[in-house]
Design a protein around this nucleic acid. Structure first.
Lengths: 258, 258
DNA sequence: GAAATAGTGTCTGTTAGACACTATTTC
DNA sequence: GAAATAGTGTCTAACAGACACTATTTC
């Protein structure tokens, strides 16, 4: 939706993209036991959107998702997981999103039948990161870009509130089957850290004794001989993932159900 | 890809569809302990394709998938499950699929840069049905349409062999979490029927005692007071799904893992 | 009674889940 | 020794998985 400098016209810009199909990334951020989503407010419209963009004719949908995620977070190689595609004629109908309004804001004269106002299919991905790593940057024509708690979303454009809900369901389902913890945590981490990550994502408290027992029993994590000094109390030991046991276990159907 | 009678030109036909995005349905058929896929051979090309088609500007992706599945199977209301979307610039490159060749076969002059030769994103669904119910019908311009065992596929166009594999993985994962048996079996069925359905889909044998025990213990199925007379031996009792227990159980995370 | 298929009970080892105290560090 | 957080052991009930015989119907 953003027309960067260097392009003379809307069509010169738009010809490089696939039509009627786009990518949306639900970027979850995790910090101090809170789960947030990075949202943008485009064109000074009142409503907010999930991070998204069009797909270049020369790139795969996964590459498009990575590029778009990098543009907003400054992080390369984020773990992106596709969780579904959304498409119906009603999904882009939104009172703030009209050719007149967008034309006025962008300065381009857009024909009312321009394909950017057509119904398009959105291929949706989610990703998860420690949010202090993110340098949130807004696009050229976006009024704002910021983190919102998943439980207190602002008014969302199109069907984006629904997409966020689906992303969260997918994340909670996948955490038992895919190496989400592995992708998210630093190489060395403490038991309290991984424990509260799982509690935050699942939105419920997990018995610490049973949680630890399961991780150690399945050999998914290994205790190191180091501790981390944080605060005036007992220092927690550091752990790391045992990649082989982890991937092997997850492949053969061992599910981390809590 | 099919241009039905009643349309004067390719563009008149093609203008009703979304561009650069399409739907593919992996239609699994189950019969006598065999799992098969319904494939088409379009345009007398040598290779075979999964059932697919374009999305009308007036319909949702789910509606498109249903319409396309109905066109090939004659069955309305098939349970279709989206399992992923596929899109990269390489995916439609195939030596048999050229503007010249397609133009010759269809009788329409297609410009070499026609969008049907562009890279497009495929939203993929699978479905499963008792295959004796299906009246397999081929499209106007398809040479053939037939069932193939999932383990002995013919040469496939584009990335369709990959899509079928992904569909099978998704089916095997989903069978533990979604009401696939419920959608597939007739209202009343026997234990041997549901047993061999699960064995066929999972591709392994399941202990009949443990299998029955689990279904009855979770109250997912209920024994009826009727039997089905089939052959010169003991008649099996009929069972039906207990929809409430089934959906409630599956929602709350009870997985039918075998 | 032979052929064909349906149907079920028991044992064992493992795991999930409930539950509460001790250990370490710093001030 | 108080404050703050880390770390761990035990019991029980439920479940998964291995295993083999009896029941019914028809000819």
């Amino acid at each position: 939706m953003i027309i960067p400098p260097g392009f003379a016209s809307f069509s010169e810009y738009s010809d490089q993209f696939l039509r009627n199909v786009a990518v949306d990334n639900v970027i979850f951020g995790y910090h101090e036991k809170e789960l947030k989503v990075l949202l943008q407010q485009p064109y000074t419209l009142e409503k907010w959107t999930v991070t998204g963009g069009y797909i270049k004719k020369t790139e795969s949908i996964e590459d498009a998702a990575s590029r778009i995620a990098f543009d907003r977070t400054g992080i390369k190689g984020l773990y992106l997981k596709q969780f579904g595609s959304f498409g119906n004629p009603q999904r882009v109908i939104d009172d703030g999103f009209t050719p007149q309004r967008i034309g006025k804001i962008t300065g381009f004269e857009l024909p009312a039948d321009s394909w950017i106002f057509d119904y398009f299919v959105s291929v949706a991905f989610y990703t998860l990161t420690e949010f202090s790593k993110v340098e949130s940057t807004k696009g050229e024509l976006e009024a704002d870009s910021r983190w919102w708690p998943v439980n207190e979303l602002p008014p969302m454009m199109f069907d984006h509130a629904h997409i966020i809900n689906e992303a969260l369901s997918a994340l909670r389902l996948h955490i038992a089957h895919f190496p989400i913890g592995y992708e998210l945590l630093p190489e060395k981490f403490t038991l309290p850290e991984i424990h509260s990550l799982y509690e935050t994502i699942l939105g419920k408290s997990l018995d610490d004794r049973n949680f630890t027992k399961k991780l150690l029993l399945t050999k998914i994590i290994t205790k190191l001989d180091e501790t981390r000094k944080i605060g005036r109390h007992r220092s927690p030991f550091l752990y790391k993932f045992d990649k082989e046991h982890y991937q092997e276990g997850l492949k053969s159907g061992v599910a981390l159900v809590f």
